[in-house]
């Protein structure tokens, strides 16, 4: 089980880094800043899928994989919608 804990640690650190990128941003232009944040959020969604997969392995309950699948479907749509909006709008 320790291996799972190490993997959890990696993912937690990764989530922390993604959060730092989300809050601290070197750009001035607000559109580019928003795009940077979209990248960070996309990464966080991927990390959440990773968390769910790990949790399914840790607890031995495969139901969590279903949740991971749903998140994989939804997160992608959100990213695409954001990118399209930022491409067109002000």
């Amino acid at each position: 089980m320790t291996v799972n804990m190490i993997a959890f640690g990696f993912l937690t650190l990764a989530l922390l880094f993604a959060f730092l990128r989300l809050t601290r941003n070197p750009n001035r232009d607000h559109r580019i800043m928003a795009l940077d944040r979209v990248i960070a959020i996309d990464l966080m969604a991927t990390l959440s899928i990773g968390f769910m997969t790990l949790f399914a392995v840790e607890t031995g309950k495969a139901v969590f994989l279903d949740a991971a699948m749903v998140l994989a479907l939804i997160a992608f749509l959100g990213t695409v919608a954001f990118a399209r909006y930022l491409e067109k709008g002000k």
Partner: peptide, 26 residues
């Protein structure tokens, strides 16, 4: 496999934090 996967996700987040421009973060 799980250990390698966790490590690469960590690397990805570090890359997103450290890379110098938006394209490379992507």
């Amino acid at each position: 496999l799980i250990l390698i996967g966790g490590f690469f996700m960590f690397v990805a987040a570090l890359g997103v934090l450290r890379m110098p421009d938006l394209y490379m973060r992507l």
